[in-house]
Design a protein around this nucleic acid. Structure first.
Lengths: 247, 247
DNA sequence: CGGAGAATTGACCTACCTCAAGATTAGTGG
DNA sequence: CCACTAATCTTGAGGTAGGTCAATTCTCCG
């Protein structure tokens, strides 16, 4: 609820995701065209950015903060199907209705492009189309990785998988199998973690407690996590020892 | 094991997936370029087309038959992460190693493109890149739909979901909420269904028996399925009544 | 006819869910 | 600064959906 003042970039040159988002490969002229059709919007933690089924007037990138993509059944069961971090793309060019709910987990700044002009720009700008293809392929891989987690891993492995994924990119882990401790803040509530993992929040809580008791993780408060030994956590996740992330 | 003679198209004009595969938007000249770098390969039912981790010398399209994309953990737990039907694309431009096992479920004909030349062609042929983006976005949607199935649905709902997906496209179902019976052959063994759904094959078998006893489906032999009332099946799948497939 | 893979069915077990009671933390207003 | 409330989280006790193990049965082919 705290309406903090969020940092909004003043121009693309200033933008923290300039080299990772859809615009990553754009040259100067292409950026100028993008500037034409873009605007920033901010959302408070907890706010719904897009409702499933709604018409989408924009697509865009997460500039800062974290948002979730969720699907819900009529009886209320919900499954998170994506975790949106800075530079991730929201919306599907070529489709008008949103297929998922997009909810801000923390305060979020979005860089929005008016949808129609963006689609036209994309049609004549291979740099953008190509980058979007790359990003979509990456997301597809992540989704498939997650299907293994959802379908075949135990609750304990699920938690360990989620923690190691968050740790891997949130804290800038040193390159290979760094043995030193890693530390980060959990951006998700227990309930959100449960929705991500196809568990109940009670089970999430129990497994976190168990991992803590076994020394796999340390907790400071409810949200601040320290991983003394990253390799140990990855073993618990059931991935092959190299992390399972082959290129 | 039957090494049947498979129909292999003699040229793109002849090809059954000409208007749905990566080449769908190509004009005549672009097709000629594709012909240069393409060749057909056939695989028998049960054969592994690609091993996870292997170098990939080609990418390509499934022309006929059905193949599966699977991920395996060290201890043998396996999860299917994709079902490849005619026109589906295999391989990831820009990556050398395969991330998944690709296995032929039936006899399969593949239209393969040598990887390097294909990547170069794609770089200067927006028609191909654009079509691949479309297809990848569709796959991502399918993967996310499947995450809901894996994470939140009951065994019975999982089976009903799988059956309704197969029914929807395998049998050419008449347009909207057709009440007439639909019939098709299951292209998957019980074990493959289990790997798709994150279940054991015993549970798959039990739930199919239950759906049969309750009149939701009818079986002739083990594989031939009749759906007397498609809407009923979709209710059992837990999707919203319109099928949940909004565009 | 015989053998092998595929499927079914039963009996039992366990990982996770459900329901419920407290504990902890953070936010609010006096 | 301190209650007061509402989230959020933890922990326990007991139930159940689906897993495991094992024995048949079915079906396809040689």
């Amino acid at each position: 609820m705290t309406a903090q003042t969020l940092h909004v970039p003043s121009a693309c040159g200033d933008c923290p995701i300039r080299h990772r988002a859809v615009c990553a490969h754009c040259d100067h002229d292409e950026l100028l065209e993008l500037e034409e059709i873009k605007y920033y919007r901010t959302f408070e933690a907890g706010q719904t950015i897009i409702w499933s089924g709604d018409m989408m007037s924009f697509v865009g990138s997460v500039v800062s903060g974290i948002a979730t993509l969720t699907q819900t059944m009529e009886d209320g069961r919900t499954q998170m199907v994506g975790l949106l971090l800075p530079s991730d793309f929201v919306g599907r060019p070529g489709r008008d209705g949103a297929a998922y709910n997009v909810v801000a987990t923390t305060d979020v700044v979005m860089c929005c492009f008016r949808k129609k002009p963006f689609e036209e720009l994309m049609a004549r700008t291979p740099h953008i189309a190509h980058r979007l293809l790359q990003m979509t392929l990456d997301e597809l891989d992540a989704a498939r990785e997650w299907m293994l987690v959802l379908g075949r891993k135990t609750a304990r492995e699920k938690i360990a998988s989620l923690l190691s994924i968050i740790a891997r990119r949130d804290a800038s882990v040193a390159a290979k199998g760094n043995a030193g401790p890693t530390t980060f803040d959990l951006p998700l509530t227990r309930e959100a973690m449960a929705d991500y993992l196809g568990l109940t929040l009670e089970t999430v809580s129990r497994q976190i407690s168990a991992l803590k008791k076994d020394g796999v993780i340390q907790l400071e408060g409810k949200r601040h996590v320290t991983i003394p030994d990253m390799r140990r956590l990855m073993d618990e996740a059931g991935d092959d020892s190299d992390g399972g992330y082959l290129i």
